[in-house]
Structure formats: C-alpha cells, structure tokens
Amino acid sequence: MSLEELKGRRRSDYAFHQEYRTRWSDNDMYDHMNNSVYSFLFDSIINAYLIEHCDLRPPASPQIGLVVNSHCDYFGSVGFPMVVELGLRVNKLGKSSVAYEVGVFEKGKDDVRAVGGYTHVFVERERNRPAPNGMSEDIRRGLKKLLENGTPKL
C-alpha cells in the first residue's frame, strides 16, 4: 500500500474503534507523543479486540500471538492533552498469521495522524510453534469480521 493511500485513511476504513486520552507522560521533549506510545496504543486496541471479540483469555489461552513485524507511518503529530481515536482493521489473514492496521485520529477530526500495526503469528503456548491447524476457530472467526476492507461487521 502506498503512503498516499495510507494518508487518505478515514475512520470509516476501520471496523473497531477505541478512544485514548493522552497523558502528560506520553509527550517527548519535542512536545508530541513519543513513538513508543504509538506501539503501546496499537498493542492495546489489538488485544482489546482479541479479548472482546475473539475469546482470547490470557494467560489461560492455549494459543498466544507473537509479534513478528511492526511498522508505523506518521502524517501528523498528536500529544497531550488530546484525545485520540484508534481504528482497527485486518489487512491479511493467513493460517496462523494476521496483519493488523491501526489508524490514529485526533478526536473529532478525520485526517489520519498515523497508520501502523503489526503482524501476529498465533502459536501453541507450550511449544511456541504454530498449531498444525493454524489459529483457533474463535480467533479466526473474530478476525474475519475486521478483514473485509474495514467494513464494520460487528
């Protein structure tokens, strides 16, 4: 996907949304949100979705998702005291892996500030290897709801 396409993302491109109130400690010395906080936000919305819609029950789940890739493209800054809105979609769903995309928006504005995400590979907790049949059916069913071009299916 090109940077221009990512920069054109709107809230409606994402099926699951979550709000985050920035904190003073989120800002770096340049008075905008530190890059590491974006990773925290991506992890938070993805895991909230997995728990709420895919029946993932850490730490009791027999499968866990390992992050094997992460990325972020920045188009505008956010920082304290803003409220940001996060959007989540799935761009690719494999047998054991899923590529997530998260859009970061300032509350009430439609211009995306950042687009990023990561790839999970679901593995058996005990062996740290993908299960022979891939991710569990509960996880797959929940993730499929986010797969169809961000069209809300919830």
Score class of each variant (00 low, 15 high):
Ser12Met: 02
Gly117Asn: 06
Val123Glu: 02
Glu52Thr: 15
Phe40His: 11
Asn27Trp: 10
Gly142Pro: 07
Met135Val: 11
Gly134Ile: 12
Asp110Glu: 14
Phe40Ser: 12
Glu137Arg: 12
Phe80His: 11
Gly94Asp: 04
Lys144Glu: 14
Ser44Lys: 05
Gly134Tyr: 10
Glu85Pro: 02
Gly108Pro: 00
Phe122Asp: 09
Arg11Lys: 07
Ala15Tyr: 05
Ser136Thr: 14
Pro130Cys: 00
Leu146Trp: 05
Ser44Leu: 12
His71Ile: 01
Asn128Leu: 15
Ser25Trp: 08
Arg141Gln: 15
Leu147His: 05
Gly76Tyr: 08
Phe42Gln: 02
Tyr14Lys: 06
Phe16Gly: 00
Pro132Val: 08
Asp73Phe: 10
Ala15Asn: 01
His53Ser: 09
Ser39Tyr: 13
Asn27Thr: 08
Leu50Lys: 04
Asp28Met: 06
Asn91Arg: 09
Ser77Gln: 10
Arg23Ile: 11
Arg23Trp: 09
Leu6Met: 15
Glu5Trp: 15
Asn34Ile: 07
Asp73Val: 06
Phe75Val: 10
Ala60Ile: 09
Gly8Trp: 07
Asp111Met: 07
Ile46Asp: 01
Leu146His: 09
Val90Cys: 10
Glu5Arg: 15
Glu4Arg: 06
Gly108Ala: 01
Gly116Ser: 02
Phe105Gln: 00
Glu126Asp: 10
Glu137Cys: 08
Arg140Thr: 00
His53Asp: 04
His53Met: 08
Arg125Pro: 06
Ile139Cys: 05
Leu66Arg: 03
Asp13Asn: 05
Asp28Cys: 06
Phe40Gln: 12
Asn47Thr: 15
Ser25Gly: 14
Lys95Val: 12
Asn91Glu: 13
Arg9His: 03
His120Ala: 03
Asp31Met: 15
Leu6Gln: 14
Asp43Leu: 04
Cys72Leu: 13
Arg89Val: 00
Cys72Gln: 12
Ala131Pro: 14
Leu56Val: 14
Leu86Lys: 07
Ala131Tyr: 13
His17Arg: 04
His120Tyr: 01
Asn69Leu: 09
Val83Ser: 08
Asn35Tyr: 13
Arg57Ala: 12
Cys54Phe: 00
Asp138His: 10
Arg141Gly: 11
Asn149Phe: 10
Val68Ala: 03
Met1Pro: 10
Ser70Val: 02
Leu88Ser: 02
Gly142His: 02
Ala131Phe: 12
Trp24Thr: 10
Thr151Leu: 07
Ala114Glu: 00
Val37Gly: 04
Ile64Ala: 07
Ser12Leu: 05
Val121Gln: 00
Tyr49Asn: 02
Asp31Ala: 15
Asp31Thr: 15
Lys107Tyr: 04
Pro62Ile: 06
Val102His: 03
Asn91Gln: 09
Cys54Pro: 14
Lys109Cys: 01
Ser97Met: 03
Arg23Thr: 08
Ala131Glu: 13
Asp73Gln: 14
Glu101Thr: 01
Val83Ala: 12
Thr151Glu: 08
Pro132Arg: 03
Arg113Gly: 05
Val98Asp: 01
Arg21Trp: 13
Arg21Gln: 14
Met33Asn: 04
Gly150Asn: 04
Val84Tyr: 04
Asn149Val: 09
Met29Ser: 13
Leu50Gln: 03
Asn47Ala: 06
Lys153Ser: 14
Leu6Ser: 12
Phe105His: 01
Glu52Pro: 10
